[in-house]
Design a protein around this nucleic acid. Structure first.
Length: 594
DNA sequence: AAGCTGACTTGAGGCAAGGGTT
DNA sequence: AACCCTTGCCTCAAGTCAGCTT
């Protein structure tokens, strides 16, 4: 089809190849414009869609009667409804969440709603509740699961596979496609991230009556479980989801959609990178424009221009405003407040330094000290004049205004395109800079990871250092030491073999020298591999590469790099990633340029 | 133009599978 | 074969952005 064109075979004529390629990409682009542009709510996403509906969470199984709950030191039997919610709390006893005031307060309030009148009258203080037997019961259960026999584990695996085959796929326009999340989220206690005002609230169980099914009219639509009915069955081919329901914490809608390997997700992904590549062509013009705008006599334009500069230079997110009290207090570019930045006319020998310190998406801290242009600095001073710490830095700007402006600068341009563009261009440029033709494959892969790391740092993709980090580092060091030992042994042996051969001058001893030489080489290589691994791991301590690899880096850059240096794609992408990026693996050859 | 809603992408964390090591 | 540790995968929360309503 248009989307996965046959790879163009190289004749010796490079120019013909290039021309042909341009045609293909032009055709593809036209196709994209036709089918994919302006796609929210306006364009047909599929013609035929058939699926089996969602898999519901298993029903609640009451605790065995020997597992007791105590209130105020005395055994108390709970109604099944109250007991179920109690088990959600009991399962989390070891978690820090359960010590937090807001969590406890929210949980207790929602738990009481599930209690019978008698329970409600009796249970008035969470501190007097003793869930420890429940907690131990669940711990024992998970131990038991681990201790199952091979056969039992095999059986579970087979059952899962059967469910996957039945519910995990759908038919969309003549293709059997993998569904991403066909299981409905089970009930439990809401765990918001960061300082979330709703943490601990009860996430209720989803029933068939909550479910909207979306499929094509001419398909066999899924049956609800016996004795139940769907909320609605609709046939909307302007959207990509198969199932939806409304979640009770924020009142937002949740969806079942297709796997990243699906045509519909792949095309969208490809389109995203094509938009970023179009930005590449006009980014200079846009940069000149916003630099001009720093001088505008209109405040709103200056603010817009400074915000855009941050988004471009620092890869900040757009920063939509959020409803206060509904979510954790986090910000992005447009929602930055005065308290989130500090200005230093001079700092560590640099002029005009801005210090950023705020909580971004997922309450991950963004901390950065950057020198900026004098004009930007002066503008920031102006924006901050006569404001309180909790006032908006950009009071004349929001994401909607910014994106409307961007749309005028380039078709399809929005704030997040800058993140994609800067991430991908950084990878490409870093790969060029860091790859050393002389080096072997492990060393080249280290270079790749370093390029990837540069992007992750730019995008602020942090992670908590793994709990086992120190130990695993030590283990690796032990291995390295052992390997060094082994190497010097091997070298010693080689030396004596050489000496031996010099005296004896026979074939046999010459052969022995060769063998020893090979051994030394092999061990040297192994040692190097370990050392590279150690470096890589150390540098990666607090940085997560996965997110940028999956969401920001045009996979064709990586595929091209692999082809150019003869590195198997498997070294860069695992199986799932190869499935997601199948289109790119197919499309890109070694001279692909982002 | 502000606010709301729906659809879709992006994100970190948790957990289990499975691969390497002892 | 038991163990241990990494890796991959899943989960589900938290963003972005466009279109609609008021």
């Amino acid at each position: 089809s248009e989307f996965k064109p046959k790879k163009i075979k190289t004749e010796n004529d490079k120019k013909a190849k290039k021309r042909k390629q341009d045609e293909v990409s032009k055709g593809r682009k036209q196709c994209a414009n036709l089918v994919l542009r302006r796609d929210t709510q306006t364009v047909v996403k599929w013609k035929f869609l058939e699926h089996k509906g969602p898999v519901f969470a298993p029903p609640y199984e009451p605790l065995p009667s020997n597992v007791k709950f105590y209130y105020d030191g005395k055994v108390m039997r709970l109604s099944p409804e109250a007991e179920e919610v109690a088990t959600f709390f009991a399962k989390m006893l070891d978690h820090e969440y359960t010590t937090k005031d807001i969590f406890r307060k929210n949980f207790f309030k929602d738990w009481r709603k599930e209690m019978t009148a008698e329970e409600k009258a009796k249970i008035t203080d969470l501190k007097k509740c003793n869930f420890s037997e429940m907690n131990e019961f669940f711990k024992a259960q998970s131990e038991a699961r681990k201790a199952m026999t091979k056969e039992e584990k095999q059986k579970i695996k087979e059952d899962n596979e059967r469910i996957l085959q039945e519910y995990g796929f759908c038919i969309m326009d003549n293709h059997r496609e993998r569904i991403a999340n066909f299981r409905i989220e089970p009930p439990g206690l809401f765990r918001g991230r960061g300082d979330h005002p709703k943490m601990g609230m009860l996430k209720r169980r989803i029933r068939p009556e909550d479910i909207i099914i979306n499929c094509s009219k001419d398909s066999k639509h899924p049956e609800p479980p016996p004795g139940t009915r769907w909320k609605e069955v609709r046939h909307d081919n302007k959207v990509t989801w198969l199932v939806s329901w409304t979640e009770n914490i924020q009142g937002s809608i949740k969806y079942i959609m297709l796997n990243p390997s699906s045509r519909i997700k792949g095309e969208k992904d490809w389109q995203k990178y094509e938009t970023a590549r179009r930005l590449k062509k006009c980014v200079d013009r846009i940069r000149n424009q916003y630099r001009e705008d720093w001088k505008s006599k209109e405040m709103r334009i200056r603010q817009r221009a400074v915000a855009l500069y941050f988004i471009d230079k620092l890869a900040l997110r757009a920063g939509n405003e959020k409803e206060e009290g509904e979510t954790a207090d986090t910000v992005g570019c447009c929602s930055l407040r005065v308290e989130h930045i500090k200005l230093y006319p001079e700092n560590d020998g640099q002029e005009y330094v801005v210090e950023f310190d705020f909580l971004g998406k997922d309450s991950i801290r963004y901390y950065n000290k950057v020198p900026v242009e004098k004009r930007v600095f002066k503008n920031l001073q102006l924006f901050m004049e006569n404001k309180e710490p909790d006032d908006d830095l950009f009071d004349r700007l929001n994401t909607s205004i910014l994106n409307k402006h961007l749309q005028e600068l380039m078709d399809g341009l929005t704030a997040k395109v800058f993140r994609t563009y800067n991430a991908s261009i950084t990878l490409q440029q870093q790969l060029k800079e860091l790859t050393n033709a002389e080096e072997n494959i492990p060393a080249k892969i280290l270079s790749y990871n370093r390029a990837n790391r540069a992007v992750a740092i730019l995008c602020n993709h942090q992670r908590a250092p793994p709990k086992t980090f120190e130990k695993s580092m030590q283990n690796l060091q032990t291995k390295i030491d052992a390997k060094r030992e082994q190497l010097s042994d091997a070298k010693r042996e080689l030396k004596s073999a050489k000496a031996d051969a010099k005296v004896r001058k026979d074939e046999k001893s010459k052969k022995a020298v060769e063998t020893k030489k090979k051994a030394v080489q092999r061990i040297e290589e192994q040692l190097m591999k370990l050392e590279v691994q150690a470096t890589d791991r150390e540098e990666n301590k607090q940085i997560a590469l996965g997110t940028s690899k999956l969401n920001y880096l045009d996979p064709r850059i990586s595929v091209a790099w692999c082809k150019k240096w003869g590195i198997p794609v498997e070294k860069i992408y695992n199986k799932t990633q190869r499935e997601k990026f199948a289109w790119a693996i197919d499309m890109a050859d070694e001279d692909f340029e982002f």
